[in-house]
Amino acid sequence: MEIVVLIKPIPEAESRLRATPDGRGLEPEGVKFVLAGYDESAVEQALLLKESLPGSRVHAVSFGPARCEETLRAAIALGADRATWVEGPPEGSDDPVLAARALAAALQTVPHDLVLGGKQAGDDEEGIVPGAVAELLGIPSFGYVTDLRSSGPSGLTFLRPTEAGVERWEAPLPCVVGLQQAWNDPRSAKLPNILKSRKAPILKVDWPTTSKALALEAKPRSIGEKFELPAPRTGAKMIEFKTPEEAAEKLVRLLREEAKVFP
């Protein structure tokens, strides 16, 4: 099975985030971008499928600025066989549809039975790219997928947990899957593989190529208007009490009089 896994570099969880001077987006300077969250699960799932189907290959693909290269190397260190960086526009873009168009254009020449991605990116959590890529490639798309397994050379089975229960699906290949969770916690890269990944070639589709292929569609359709960090949380209030009744009474009074949650 030719498995393409779409990955996006996202800020490391411990990063201290701030807005760009124009207030429209996240300031990337000083932020470490990593493979994490749902995309990390997607890489794990791609590797699990590869291991269960001899002869399969995993091809990691990332769209965006130069920082994609580090994320692709992380995927190679984990076990991806190949990696392609689809360069974004020099002025940058957060437009998920442009990302999907660029990725779909690049995938025209990349063999793919399964295109796997996180159900949404771990940072902006828009969840648009997998579905949009499927639409552009003209193949089915499935989101919120867990327990993804191969059912032979031309199909997949998976589960979709919903509020009403768990759906069990069978899907044909090729298709796009937005993954909720892999079977396993994502593995860690071994040191010797990290060293090898540093020397691995990264294929590059440069922006002029993508821009030409997309022609009029190469322009971002959405532009961030304002980027603000959440207000700092104020401290918790501890309620002192001797009996549960007293605790409940004090809590209700605070909710009513201070927090004004109900009249």
Partner: peptide, 8 residues
Amino acid sequence: EQESLRDA
């Protein structure tokens, strides 16, 4: 390379 080893 050193950074990625340290990160791991």
